[in-house]
Design a protein around this nucleic acid. Structure first.
Lengths: 182, 182
DNA sequence: GTCAGTTCTGACCGATCGGACAGTTACGGT
DNA sequence: ACCGTAACTGTCCGATCGGTCAGAACTGAC
């Protein structure tokens, strides 16, 4: 069943993106993708030189969009620079939510599958950070603080001395959470 | 060479934590850990029921620390609640930096190994978010925004409507970056 | 119909991995 | 010295995975 040129190719990418976003890159086999896309594993490797090439093709649009953004703000300075970078970055992450999710799925799958159900605790932490509020803005702010501290703590030690790191994280986190309801 | 009771066990955990933090969980084989710890792969499986159990044991202290924190703030409310939660969370992440890093290494390895060198672009974005500043507080704030937006965009759609999500992310990010130098 | 080129597939391969198991070595109590 | 137990290992196994390859199936141009 030799279909039209790009039909199967597109279908493969679609299936891969969905499966990667659910089971992660390493947690998804070529056979999984092939079955979902409705073709043989060999057909995958006819269209793509390898498993990594599929991932590359999926992430390239996001990469290009980021490069474009950086190019656009390269001539700016001061407040304009920061503002444009922030808005552009936020819009970019929202546009490529599925692609970002697939990057995290390996972590999520790893944390959930264990005896230690971290997710329940994460919910508790989220509640505390949001001050037990159920309002959407509070929840979003809590998520941001959770992610910000989590990722920042994983940076190289050379980014900043521990004292600065700690002080800045606490200060920024409290400012983020002290939102004024719209 | 049967050593004392927990000597090899501890060595295994140490090697595993280090290797996981470098090559990720899935990127590290039992043989890798065994070689690094100086024992046989079979010895690993004598001390630990399986590969996942090693990871579980490595993450358990962090999990327990988080549970303790949540228990401690469970009786608090309002400003005290948020403040205690933030400080406790920050200190916790700094204490378990290596454990957090290992969670990210699968992502990092995946993003670097590709043709698309996202890391270079990430550096550029970091520069822009920091307003081209090289000061430590600015760099930390930029890292926090990068992580906050990245993780928040990966949350379930049900956390908040897209409009609220976008507005809140931009607002919080700008506040975080508009720091007053100490 | 013919034929060249694209698309697709079944069967197979080598490598790797997590894990099982029987057997060996070392240790500590008696 | 003896022995039960804990610590450790060499070897093997089944499963899975990414990838190869020769050839079949299909398509469009002539």
């Amino acid at each position: 069943m030799a279909r039209s040129v790009s039909a199967m190719r597109g279908q493969i990418l679609e299936s891969a993106l969905r499966l990667f976003a659910v089971h992660g890159f390493r947690g998804t086999s070529l056979q999984d993708i092939a079955s979902d896309a409705g073709c043989s594993k060999a057909s995958l490797l006819y269209h793509f030189a390898g498993k990594e090439k599929i991932l590359t093709e999926l992430l390239t649009p996001a990469r290009d969009a980021l490069a474009t953004l950086l190019d656009r703000v390269s001539g700016l300075e001061g407040g304009r620079l920061v503002e444009e970078a922030v808005v552009g970055y936020v819009d970019l992450t929202l546009r490529f939510r599925r692609e970002i999710r697939l990057l995290f799925e390996d972590i999520a799958e790893m944390s959930c599958h264990q005896d230690l159900n971290v997710m329940e605790l994460a919910d508790g932490l989220l509640d505390a950070l949001a001050g037990r509020s159920q309002q959407a803005p509070s929840r979003v702010a809590a998520w941001m603080v959770l992610g910000a501290v989590f990722i920042t703590s994983a940076t190289d030690d050379e980014v900043a001395p521990d004292e600065v790191l700690r002080a800045e994280m606490i200060r920024s986190a409290l400012r983020t959470l002290d939102h004024t309801p719209s």
